[in-house]
């Protein structure tokens, strides 16, 4: 494996260089949380790569909460922005992986997602300090990237230690080769130590694994367990909209001059009208059914297709829940 070291005093130069390709969004510490902020050369550059995934979800960059997908009757081209995501954590990469399978692998491909994906450079960062809400280790993910991103880096004493995953990533390294230096064996060892320590911390946070045969257990759940699990839920949908793997949307048409815009807006399966048909019939009229649909979707059906869970362990559903519902507790109960 080939490594490239970006010395600490070159990080800003790298970001500035990348910003010529499109807006760069990087993680910054603010009010105790890491946030995704847009790099602005006129403002202080205050990166924070040790903290957990940002509060903001990167799915907005690939599947915005509201985006135009077609214009008719004039078939105007829909453009996709060029953008760079810097410091993405491995849990959020799983979200992109899930989307890639749905929108690029499953036929037919979604050309709008594809264009956004191709125009986005993803640079991920190791996650050395997992928080209590994190559980990527329970859904088969390590706290460091192993694929999906174009480049990944580990923050070490002397700078950022990079490796490449894609051709796009290799080209970036080549383009900015003057900024990079050759790492030594000590740097690689430091990376190993950081990773090992992160894995151990995660194990300490989540000692108990989810049960074997989770997909089947979720499908065969008894009604009482569902009722208990959703008992405190206030149906705010924060868990759905903050989830990196939730992707449900609906198409809505709006008149715009002589043309009509077809807009894709996020939808959520907790809404009572989500699956209702024109005639009024509803396959999931009870909230218990809609609540559990989220679990079936992520842990049973997606798993049946792809043999991975559509859950990243990012913990946004836990930290955003005003009823303090912890998805881990629900799954451990099965």
């Amino acid at each position: 494996m080939k490594f490239y070291l970006l010395p600490s005093n070159k990080i800003l130069d790298f970001i500035q260089g990348l910003s010529r390709k499109g807006p760069v969004y990087y993680s910054q510490l603010r009010d105790g949380n890491t946030h995704l902020v847009r790099f602005d050369p006129d403002k202080d550059f205050l990166p924070e790569f040790k903290g957990i995934r940002t509060a903001e979800n990167i799915k907005h960059f690939f599947l915005p909460s509201r985006s135009t997908v077609a214009r008719y009757p004039d078939d105007e081209k829909i453009s996709a922005p060029h953008q760079v995501l810097f410091g993405v954590k491995s849990c959020d990469l799983r979200g992109v992986d899930v989307y890639d399978r749905i929108f690029l692998k499953w036929e037919p491909i979604d050309p709008l997602y594809k264009a956004r994906r191709e125009n986005t450079i993803i640079i991920s960062a190791d996650c050395p300090e997992p928080a209590d809400t994190c559980f990527c280790n329970l859904v088969g993910i390590n706290p460091y990237a192993e694929a999906t991103a174009d480049l990944n880096f580990t923050e070490i004493e002397s700078g950022l230690l990079f490796e490449t995953f894609t051709k796009k990533g290799e080209e970036i390294i080549k383009q900015f080769q003057d900024l990079f230096t050759e790492p030594d064996k000590g740097d690689e060892k430091e990376r190993q130590m950081i990773r090992r320590s992160a894995v151990q911390k995660l194990r300490a946070i989540n000692e108990k694994q989810f049960r074997a045969g989770l997909a089947q257990a979720v499908e065969q759940v008894d009604e009482e367990k569902v009722r208990q699990a959703r008992d405190e839920c206030v149906e705010c949908l924060s868990c759905l909209f903050s989830c990196p793997t939730c992707y449900c949307f609906l198409l809505a048409d709006y008149k715009k001059g002589k043309n009509i815009e077809r807009v894709r807006v996020w939808d959520g399966c907790y809404y009572s009208g989500y699956a209702r048909v024109g005639g009024g019939m509803n396959p999931r009229p009870k909230f218990d059914e809609r609540f559990w649909n989220r679990f079936l979707c992520k842990f049973t059906y997606f798993y049946q297709y792809e043999e991975i869970y559509a859950c990243t362990g990012c913990g946004r559903c836990n930290s955003g829940c005003m009823a303090k519902i912890d998805i881990r507790e629900i799954l451990w109960q099965l």
Partner: peptide, 9 residues
């Protein structure tokens, strides 16, 4: 909604 197996409805 979508007709192509993406929107999940």
């Amino acid at each position: 909604s979508c007709g192509i197996g993406k929107c999940n409805h």
